[in-house]
Design a protein around this nucleic acid. Structure first.
Lengths: 203, 203
DNA sequence: ATTCACCTGCGACAAATTGTCGCGCGGCAA
DNA sequence: TTGCCGCGCGACAATTTGTCGCAGGTGAAT
């Protein structure tokens, strides 16, 4: 139930219907902040389609400038920008408008980072790579954040490994060689592992 | 810090009445919550020595009872107790006294769990195993702007696995067969892996 | 005492996964 | 163009798993 993903044939109607309700007023404003232009380009239309009025910023500074004039209702901030600016921005956004729902992204599932972000005002955390639906889910999730499935994570070792690999891989922009080195494993092995799991294998 | 160099190295069983000592300086009250008695026993004297007035609880319920009458200034809560009680307790403690500094522990480096705990009021997060100094450091750390080491964690896959195994193993009280099943790996393999690394966890 | 249900360690051997080498290709900067 | 680096992939040896099975131990129920 967690990740329903849009198995919906047409995400369009769903969204449009949803939006139909608040459509009369105006779309929700969303600020995307990431220094990776490709990422912005990829996400922007997707979020538009989902009913957000999207602004883009490729640095914490410009994001702050934008936000100062018109604090967005939602924000997606990549922590992995030059410097700690990502975290700083989170705090700035939060203080500009405490109501802003901020989702933080990082290529790495660094607990400390995530925790820090939350303390500073982020409302949710996601590890890259993410897709638009996950982000939307994160925004919506907030309402009833009661039951949290925790602990009891006998996570099959194999999967643990896979996720770890994915993260590090993402962190290295998909560079297999670099990832292998970083993980201290042989390129060939990583290669083979990646080949095995084309995509799926969820839980 | 500020170690009171009082000669009482002995572990006072009745931690509550430290008044007998009548130090003009009041010790900070600390509540340790973990269902692992050994853990409590190990940590209690250590924290005492570091100048805390320690109370113990081996369940979220009893912890709550204790806290109701006398909300502690500091708390260490193991999230990994039966049920979601750990998280619930965090929230309870926070609402009893917003000023309570709560450090949350988990055997698992689960990002989501940590994040959730923070949202509910914890002020810091640590992964087991920890030592007393780390906890104290966590307490002292101000929530303000800390330098956060981003990413930087290309954790060798092999170690990731090892730690994971150790956790799950601990979770099953060292039962190899059960752990193997839980991890979805063969007993023989686990056995061999464990044999390889002679020195178990440290720190 | 005996049976049962489980755990533990360990030997052995086949099956599967890794470690290594090396080749050819394709970008990219000097 | 040359050199550096990354990518995919074949091949083969070195290791590591998956499986079986056996012997021994423990605790509870019979």
């Amino acid at each position: 139930m967690t990740s329903l993903k849009t198995k919906n044939t047409a995400k369009n109607d769903t969204v449009e219907n949803d939006m139909a309700e608040n459509n009369m007023t105006e779309k929700a404003t969303l600020l995307l902040v990431d220094d990776d232009q490709d990422f912005l380009n990829a996400l922007q239309p997707a979020m538009c389609k989902r009913g957000f009025l999207v602004s883009l910023a490729n640095s914490a500074e410009s994001a702050f400038e934008l936000a100062k004039n018109d604090p967005p209702e939602f924000a997606v901030v990549d922590l992995k920008m030059s410097g700690n600016s990502g975290l700083v921005l989170v705090r700035q956004l939060a203080s500009l408008n405490a109501g802003t729902r901020i989702v933080v992204l990082t290529g790495f599932a660094s607990v400390t980072t995530a925790v820090e972000a939350i303390k500073l005002g982020a409302t949710h955390y996601l590890a890259k790579p993410v897709d638009a639906d996950e982000i939307v889910a994160a925004f919506e999730k907030q309402t009833g954040d009661d039951e949290v499935e925790l602990a009891s994570n006998p996570l099959p070792i194999e999967r643990l490994e896979w996720e770890h690999i994915q993260r590090v891989l993402a962190e290295h922009d998909g560079n297999i060689s670099a990832t292998a080195r970083s993980l201290n494993m042989h390129r060939r092995t990583l290669q083979r592992k990646l080949n095995k799991h084309p995509s799926s294998y969820t839980k």
